[in-house]
Design a protein around this nucleic acid. Structure first.
Length: 491
RNA sequence: GGUCGGUUGGCCGAGUGGCUAGGCAGUGGUCUGCAAAACCAUGUACGGCGGUUCGAAUCCGCCACCGACCUCCA
């Protein structure tokens, strides 16, 4: 059985066998959110993608240090000097101190992630908490001669860097092409070249978020924090760096350049990028008005949504597509995912109640191998889920007495579903228990079901149906099974 | 315009040079007083045109369309 884990490395555009720098340990860094607004679908996908990786690496017994940053220093809304910073803008709009904005949205982001059952990273550093480290990084780049100071700002000298190194190797861009496609923006007169990017930005007097530095009051450039913080917590050489595909250029390209300039070598072994999310086939964008926040999704309040979708439905839906493929959200697709997940979760719950027989008519080991093979092939969660659905048939057949399983196989099967469904995919029952339910409620329902059973025994169908129909109208569904009736609260 | 990626059955979404992906919906069946639920079974597919090949939806070329990035974005 092939136990090697293969991951797609954006740098080589190939799947590569994953080999950690230090045996048994993995360092991974993922670009987190800028906290100036509610978390939306676009934040959910990378969080879940790299949560899957985090969980799987741990399942493989790696000790993982997972760093996901919080960007809270207020980068500019455009690349020119005149642009307002995003957090400062939001602060003015809402009449809040910028750090109040940051605090509010950071907490909301973390709550949403926890609803999606995304595990907390090992470290969640903020850019504002690492101004000193960023200044040190900038100094190192200046010392190496790949940056210059200009009117209180510090810029990275892309042209000089490109002479000595390959600028564009990650995104596949050529520097001569970049010249012809870079727009002229305000404030570019202080740069030597339009390709140069800010490492430190001088703060205009009205700019709220500002810190002192050797070059005057200002704030760090967009790309600086990841270089500084990944190095601080993972070292100048680490295993995996992840993020959305939209960050490939310029963000990650700039990170590579900064690291090489500051440390003299590249720092990341595997670059991983998740694909983006579309809504009804359209790019999700603020201007298109189809940005769906996670809260809106969970509550069904967005105008594009027919009804609410639970966090686990969203999680399952995202995992049902491969992380490097684009993913399209639609009501139809979400409802299909919800039903499918329901079936998987019911079978997963059922597997622990199965009874062992003397012999097995099912091939559990082969199922297990296929599950690992799927995950080892660049985290192919859709294939994994397909195999788990094959297992659902197996489980149901055993439960129906149409197949049998011996004790040893049953143990494997139970562990398999525990590990892959709960631990690795990170799925859990949508409503753990009915919150509005209580012991008294259970007793009342038991009474009603007993009364209905009595009516059925007396062939009093109208009473039996009345109980069933009226309960249904209240949102309680009665299900008749061989072993008697059960009930379920529907939202 | 440049770079990169995609185009799969009613919908979503994998994968592969010849052998069923999977889910949802649909259809048939089992169960049921009826129904629902549950379970079982099941079909039409690989954008267009050429080429390579014994054989391609899978490889190559051209075309069309879509998308991403090139500017803040996950």
């Amino acid at each position: 059985m092939d136990k090697k884990l293969y991951l797609y490395n954006t740098l080589s555009r190939k799947k590569e066998e994953f080999k950690p720098i230090n045996p048994g340990r993995v360092g991974m860094y993922v670009c987190g959110p800028t906290v100036y607004g509610d978390a939306h679908l676009g934040h959910g996908r990378p969080a879940i993608t790299f949560d899957l990786l985090f969980r799987y690496l741990q399942h493989l017994d790696y000790k993982v240090r997972y760093v996901r940053n919080i960007t809270d220093v207020g980068h500019l809304t455009d690349d020119g000097d005149q642009g307002e910073d995003k957090i400062g803008k939001k602060a003015k709009l809402e009449q809040l101190e910028p750090m109040e904005v940051v605090q509010r949205y950071k907490l909301r982001y973390q709550r949403n992630m926890s609803q999606l059952n995304v595990l907390s990273p090992s470290i969640e550093p903020t850019a504002s908490g690492h101004i000193i480290e960023q200044i040190e990084t900038i100094k190192a780049i200046l010392d190496a001669g790949y940056a210059y100071e200009s009117r209180g700002s510090v810029y990275f000298d892309v042209e000089k860097y490109a002479k000595d190194h390959d600028y564009g190797k990650l995104s596949g861009r050529k520097i001569e092409d970049l010249y012809s496609t870079t727009r002229e923006l305000d404030g570019q007169q202080e740069k030597r070249s339009s390709l140069d990017f800010a490492l430190w930005k001088n703060a205009s007097p009205e700019h709220i978020m500002r810190w002192p530095s050797p070059w005057g009051d200002g704030f760090p450039g967009w790309h600086t924090e990841c270089t500084a913080m990944s190095c601080k917590y993972l070292g100048s050489q680490f295993d995996i760096h992840g993020g959305g595909m939209d960050l490939l250029f310029p963000h990650h390209e700039a990170e590579i350049a900064q690291s090489v300039a500051a440390h003299g070598h590249e720092t990341v072994n595997y670059w991983m990028h998740n694909n983006l999310v579309t809504i009804n086939g359209q790019k999700m964008g603020k201007s298109l008005g189809n940005f769906i926040n996670l809260d809106e999704l969970f509550e069904g309040t967005h105008k594009l949504l027919e009804r609410p979708y639970g966090p686990m439905t969203i999680r399952f839906f995202i995992l049902q597509a491969h992380y490097r493929s684009p993913l399209d959200f639609s009501n139809e697709a979400l409802q299909a995912a919800e039903k499918g997940m329901d079936r998987l979760m019911k079978a997963t719950a059922l597997v622990s109640a199965l009874k062992a027989s003397d012999e097995s008519t099912v091939d559990v080991s082969s199922l297990q191998e296929k599950c690992y093979a799927a995950m080892n092939d660049d985290l192919n969660s859709p294939i994994l889920i397909a195999h788990l659905f094959d297992g659902v048939k197996m489980i149901n057949s055993i439960n129906d007495g149409k197949a049998s399983i011996n004790a040893a196989d049953l143990k494997i099967l139970q562990d398999l579903y525990q590990q892959f469904v709960y631990d690795i995919l990170g799925l859990q029952g949508e409503q753990q228990s009915n919150e509005s339910s209580s012991d008294a409620m259970d007793d009342v329902m038991q009474l009603l079901l007993t009364l209905r059973q009595d009516a059925k025994t007396n062939k009093d169908w109208s009473t039996a149906d009345k109980i069933r129909d009226e309960l249904k109208a209240m949102g309680i569904e009665v299900k008749d099974t061989k072993d008697g009736a059960t009930w379920e609260l529907k939202n």
